[in-house]
Design a protein around this nucleic acid. Structure first.
Lengths: 272, 272
DNA sequence: AAAATAGTGTCTGTAAGACATTATCTA
DNA sequence: TAGATAATGTCTTACAGACACTATTTT
C-alpha cells in the first residue's frame, strides 16, 4: 500500500560508532559542508531516515521511595524488558504534548504541564537497533504514585529507582537506564534550586512530609530544624492552612499548601 | 528529480498550535496509543517526515563584549538574515561531532570537545517553513573570537550578543533569537557553578582578565577583591605560573593558567 | 607626583550546621 | 509515664559584600 522511499530510507548496517569520515563516503547525503540545506531546501532525498521520539522519566514517591514509572516491552527489540513510556512525535505535534500523551496513553498517569521539563536529547546511532531514533527525554514529577490502571494501560508499573537502576542481568531497554539516571540527577538539582519538590507530595502537607520527600530524592537525612527554617523563611514557598494533622504519635503537625512558586537564592543545598 | 513521498510528506497548513486531537484524525500515522512502534517496528510508512539538525551558539569575547558567531543566510527561507551555524545530522553521526563539524565547516572556528554542551531541543512544528525540523541546540565557548576565515567560510561573523538580540527589524532567522537567548542564559549559569569561564580567555591570564570575562557575560561589575578571594580559595580553579604581566599602567598582574577543573560549591553567585 | 591597576586586610551581615529545649500527641 | 514527633531557640561557622589600605607600574 505505501510507497517505499527510494533513497536513504534504509538504515546502513554497521553504522555503529559513526566515524564521521567514513560516513561521508557512505553514499547517503554528505552532511553539511557548505550546502546548508540543499539547493531547494530540504529535498526529500536529502532526508536521512530518522525517527524523533519523546521518552519521559516520571518520578514519584511510592511508600516513601523515589520511584520511576516504567512499561514492559512486549515486542522486539528488548522484549520483556522495562522501558520508559514514550512515543513517536506526531507530525505537527509539539514535544510537550507528545510527552504528556505518551505517559497518559501507556500508563494512565496524567502529568501536569508545569511538572514536566525537557531533560536532554539522546541520539546515539546505535541506541535503537531498528533505525536511527533520536529521542527527546523529559522528566516529570507526579504527586501520587498511582497504581497502574487496569485494562489497556496495564503495562505500567512503578519501580523504586534504586531497583530499576540496579537490576542485575535485566537492564532497562535501550539506553533508558542512562536516561533514568540523568532524570534523577536533574530532579536532585531542581530540588536545590526550586520548589519542584512540592510536586512530589499531596496537599495539604506537613513540613515533615516535605522533608521526607527531599530525603528520599537526595538519599540523605536532613536536619529538621534547619530544613524548616529554610522553607519558612523563603517567601512564596508554602502557605500555612491553619490546620493540624495528627498521624500516630507525637505532636500534631501544622499543615501547609503550595505557595505561589519560587526560585531559591541561595539554594537549599543538599548534604555532600 | 526527487520523488515526493505520498503520505505525510506535506506540512499541514495551519498546524501551528498542534492540537493533538486534530492531529490524530489527520490521515498520517496516529501517534502512539497502544501500538508503541508498529507491528514490525518503525515501518518506513510510519516515519513522519522530519529532519534532525544541530545548531550551535558559539560564544566568545570580542573586544571585551560577549559575542555570538553567526552566518548569513543566502537562500530561502530568511535570505539575508543571520543564523546560527548548524547542519543536518548525518546518518550514523553523533550529535557532538555534528555540532563541531557544523561550526568548523561554516565558519572555520574550531570548538574544543569539553567546551561544547547540549543546550536543549527545539521542535516547534512551524520553526522552519519547509518541513518539520527538530534541532538540537548546543552552546560552546571559544577563547578567541577569531576573525572569520576567508574564502569558503567567509560568511561567519561575530556579533555582540546585545546587538544580535536587539536587531530591530532584522531578527535572526528561524527561532535562532530564542536559542541565542537560552544559550547566553546557560553560560551565565555555568559561570556560577563551574570554571567554564576559563574557556573564554587565553592562557596565561590575569585575574583581571578572568574577572572582566565574568563581567562581560553577566553584564554587571564585580568586586575585584571578592572575586579574587573566591577564585584563589577554590582549589583547582587556577594555577599560578609565577610570571607577571604589565599592560599599560598600574602594578603588574600575576599570571595564571587553568587548574585541573572544578565544580563550585557554593557557587560564585552573580549580582542580582 | 599623579593616575592607574593589582593585591591584602578586615569588618559586617546573611545564612547554614549543630544541637539543646520545649510542646503536644499516642500507647 | 514513656516514647515519639513537631516546633522553637541559640550558638557557631562559613562565606560573601563592602571598602579601606598598600604595592607597583607608566606618564
Amino acid at each position: 500500500m505505501a510507497k517505499e522511499r527510494k533513497k536513504s530510507g534504509k538504515r546502513e548496517p554497521g553504522s555503529g560508532k559513526a566515524k564521521q569520515s567514513a560516513k561521508r563516503s557512505s553514499g547517503t547525503r554528505r552532511p553539511g559542508a557548505d550546502a546548508p540545506d540543499g539547493p531547494g531546501g530540504f529535498g526529500t532525498d536529502d532526508r536521512p531516515a530518522v525517527v524523533v521520539t519523546v521518552d519521559v522519566v516520571v518520578l514519584a514517591l511510592l511508600d516513601g521511595a523515589l520511584s520511576v514509572l516504567l512499561v514492559e516491552r512486549e515486542r522486539a527489540p528488548h522484549p520483556g524488558q522495562w522501558a520508559l513510556p514514550g512515543t513517536v512525535v506526531g507530525p505537527g505535534e509539539q514535544l510537550v504534548p507528545a510527552a504528556t500523551r505518551a505517559v497518559a496513553a501507556r500508563t494512565g498517569v496524567s502529568v501536569a504541564p508545569g511538572r514536566l521539563e525537557q531533560l536532554a536529547t539522546f541520539a546515539d546511532p546505535d541506541r535503537d537497533p531498528r533505525t536511527r531514533v533520536v529521542t527527546v527525554a523529559f522528566v516529570a514529577v507526579v504527586e501520587r504514585a498511582d497504581p497502574p490502571a487496569g485494562g489497556a494501560v496495564a503495562s505500567g508499573r512503578w519501580w523504586p529507582v534504586e531497583e530499576a537502576m540496579a537490576k542485575k542481568g535485566r537492564r532497562l531497554a535501550f539506553d533508558h537506564g542512562v536516561i533514568v539516571g540523568r532524570g534523577v540527577e536533574r530532579l536532585r538539582v531542581d530540588l536545590e534550586q526550586s520548589d519542584l519538590g512540592l510536586g512530589l507530595i499531596q496537599e495539604p502537607f506537613t513540613l515533615g512530609d516535605l522533608r521526607r520527600a527531599y530525603e528520599a530524592v537526595w538519599g540523605a537525612p536532613l536536619e529538621p530544624a534547619n530544613f524548616r527554617r529554610k522553607i519558612l523563611t523563603t517567601p512564596g514557598f508554602v502557605e500555612p492552612t491553619g490546620g493540624l494533622r495528627t498521624v500516630t504519635t507525637g505532636r500534631p503537625a501544622e499543615l501547609y499548601g503550595r505557595g505561589i512558586g519560587v526560585r531559591l537564592h541561595p539554594p537549599l543545598v543538599r548534604p555532600r
